Simulated scan of single mutants.
Amino acid sequence: MNATMYAVRLGLSRGWFEFRHTLASSDQFFNVFTATGFLAVLWFQRDSPVEGMSLSLASMTLPSMLGMMVAFGGLVGPAGALSMNREDGTLLRAKAIPNGMTGYLVGRVVQTSLDALFSLTVVMLPGALLIGGLSGVGFDEFLYLLLVLVVGMLATLPWGAVAGSLAKSPQGAMGFTMLPMMAIISISGIFYPISAMPGWLQGVAQVFPVYWLGLGTRSAMLPDAAVVMEIGGSWRSLEMFGVLGVWAVVGFLLAPTILRRMARRESGADMEQRRHAALQRGVG
């Protein structure tokens, strides 16, 4: 086994171990708390019909939520973890080991993906039982849904790594990701059909992956009749995979270069300075 494959193997083990560790941490408590909030939204929407259709608003919202959660986890999760690992010295130690950065990045991808899967399960299973109306989702639709979610993760995860590399602190990483993401979600048709929004907002939303992820999950889980609520009355599957693919390709082209530059600049003095600043924030 060559050095790179060995690093990948260690990264897979590291990602699994870190995910198991988070199951007993406050991170998963936050995920469960957030999922409870999403389920509460579905509960209040369950009796609100979509105009001209037999579906409830909750039936439209649940698939969109799944896409939103993948985009949110792919961007915010890696950004926060990467910035924290810069502060606690994890990245500096990885840099000092041959192929250590490769193992670190593989581990981060594995943990992020497993975290996303856990969060999706917590929302999807009770959500489907709560609202009904998704009985038409068979094996083929499930595979298509899985494909959409995987492509969506690939489209957002490298940008989370970029944000974490550029941020000076975990708080800065949240500022880079959390606030812009909330603004994008609000215009992406996640909680209300995007076709009811002004045309210029529809155009802005279609630039970002969140809208396309929501569109893809809706196309996998909703009946064909629901397509009338979409822009142009079409699921636009080719455009959806195209836009997500562009975000993924550009992200994976940029992220390694930015990560390498960030790793080269890492030093013990910088880590100690960030640690001191974190202690000061804690005291303050």
Rank of each mutant, 00 (worst) to 15 (best):
A71V: 12
S48R: 14
F33M: 03
L66E: 00
M65I: 12
L42F: 03
F29G: 10
T36D: 11
Q28E: 11
G67T: 10
M60R: 15
R46G: 06
P49W: 08
S48P: 02
F72D: 11
E51D: 15
L75Y: 01
V41A: 07
V50H: 09
T36W: 12
D47R: 13
Q45Y: 07
G80D: 03
T61S: 05
S48T: 14
M68L: 08
L82A: 02
R46H: 13
M65H: 10
S26N: 10
A79E: 00
F72P: 02
A71E: 12
M69A: 07
P63D: 09
A40K: 06
S59L: 12
V70C: 07
F44V: 05
T36V: 06
W43V: 10
S56A: 06
T61N: 09
S64D: 02
T36A: 10
M60H: 14
R46K: 10
G52E: 05
A71K: 13
S26M: 15
G37V: 08
R46L: 02
V50T: 03
S56L: 09
F38D: 02
V41H: 05
L42H: 00
L57R: 14
M65F: 15
G73A: 09
L62G: 06
L39P: 01
L66F: 11
F33H: 02
V32E: 01
M65Y: 15
F44R: 03
G67F: 06
G74S: 05
A35D: 04
M60V: 12
G67S: 11
G52S: 08
L42W: 05
M68K: 14
S59H: 05
D27G: 05
S26G: 07
M53Y: 06
M68T: 02
W43H: 06
A81E: 08
Q28M: 10
L62I: 00
S64M: 05
T36L: 10
L55V: 03
W43S: 08
L66Q: 01
P78V: 00
D47S: 11
P49C: 08
G67R: 11
L55R: 07
G74F: 02
S26F: 15
A40Q: 07
F72H: 13
G77C: 09
T61H: 04
G80K: 12
V41I: 14
A79W: 01
P63N: 10
P49V: 05
P49T: 01
S26Q: 13
G74L: 05
L39I: 00
V32P: 05
F44N: 08
V70A: 04
F44T: 04
G77W: 13
F44H: 10
F72K: 15
V76I: 08
F30T: 06
L62P: 03
A79R: 00
S54A: 13
M69G: 05
M60G: 13
G74R: 02
D47A: 12
A79H: 02
M68V: 01
S64L: 09
V50K: 00
G52P: 09
N31A: 11
T34V: 10
M53E: 14
D47L: 08
F30H: 03
Q45G: 07
S48I: 09
F72S: 12
F29H: 06
V41G: 04
S59C: 13
G73P: 11
V50A: 08
G73D: 07
G52F: 03
V76H: 15
E51K: 11
L55A: 11
Q28F: 12
S83I: 01
S59Q: 15
P63V: 04
E51M: 13
L57A: 13
S54C: 04
